[in-house]
């Protein structure tokens, strides 16, 4: 079934609002990772508001779908989505990265709705594999999602985990790669090229879809394809733009891990509000 145009518009509107919240959070904290948060926010919005089954009132419900954010520095993106879903009060967003706050700098499992604390790259997929294996062993039907970053694909453990997912035929597992092309000190392609990701993953025994990770219709289409290939783990290569939505941040490694100051924020908001 094709998604309604109205639903698509609503998802786009939400993602636009999240972009603003992400930048405000990081500005207020004085530190954080805007680039990789803006690149994955359309994917997270689509996932959390049209696909994934979660129960904000019962974050530990066994029936929930699991989501592992392996690229833990994109915490602002996940936190803003979880707050909107009602996992915790939105006021917490203002205390991001502050001493004693719920919202740690990197994705943290103490936050309702978060499954795993991450921040050391490359570790999330193995954990997701373990959850997927456990679900198979128990005959449970929920799904497991894991988001990776493309810079993260340079970690060897990720490739060990790809082998595990395929070997154990984890067709209850969906990896979403936020392929934003930029890492801290430059382009992924120039620092240690990972392409062709789709070709490699197909060789590894995965079912692969490649999409524009900022196009809601394509994102929803790819998510709908998950769960239809028995015996194969599912990989969505989402081509994205680091810093998407703010012209001076787009594809600029400078904005991997730098907070916008008040002037930057004002300029960014001007663009985002227009864009919305």
């Amino acid at each position: 079934m094709q998604p309604d145009k109205k639903d698509i518009k609503e998802l786009e509107r939400k993602a636009g609002k999240f972009r603003i919240e992400i930048l405000k959070m990081i500005n207020k904290a004085g530190a954080g990772h805007p680039g990789g948060s803006l690149s994955c926010i359309d994917l997270l919005t689509a996932l959390y508001f049209s696909k994934i089954k979660v129960f904000p009132g019962q974050p530990q419900s066994p029936a929930r779908d699991r989501f592992i954010m392996s690229k833990g520095h994109a915490s602002p993106a996940l936190y803003t989505v979880l707050a909107e879903k009602g996992f915790f009060p939105k006021a917490e967003l203002d205390r991001f990265r502050k001493l004693g706050a719920l919202l740690q700098g990197h994705v943290h499992a103490a936050v309702p709705g978060v499954e795993l604390s991450t921040g050391s790259l490359g570790q999330g997929l193995s954990f997701a594999n373990g959850m997927a294996l456990a679900a198979k062993l128990k005959g449970e039907k929920h799904m497991i999602y894991c988001m990776l970053g493309d810079g993260e694909m340079q970690e060897g453990q990720v490739w060990e985990a790809f082998l595990t997912s395929a070997h154990h035929e984890l067709d209850n597992l969906c990896v979403i790669l936020d392929a934003n092309k930029v890492q801290q000190n430059g382009l992924v392609a120039e620092i240690k090229n990972i392409e062709s990701v789709a070709g490699k993953l197909r060789q590894f025994g995965w079912k692969v879809e490649e999409i524009d990770g900022h196009d809601m219709v394509q994102i929803l289409g790819a998510l709908r394809g998950f769960g239809k290939e028995p015996g194969m783990p599912y990989f969505i290569k989402a081509n994205t733009i680091k810093g998407k939505g703010v012209s001076f941040m787009e594809l600029n490694p400078h904005w991997h891990g730098k907070a916008p100051n008040d002037k930057d924020l004002a300029a960014a908001l001007l663009e985002l509000e227009k864009w919305n």
């Binding site: 499954e115 193995s126 594999n129 373990g130 959850m131 294996l133 456990a134 985990a161 595990t164």
Partner: peptide, 12 residues
């Protein structure tokens, strides 16, 4: 490394 992460996922 993968084994440790997988074990942790199963423990969860």
């Amino acid at each position: 490394q993968d084994m440790i992460g997988t074990a942790a996922g199963m423990s969860r």
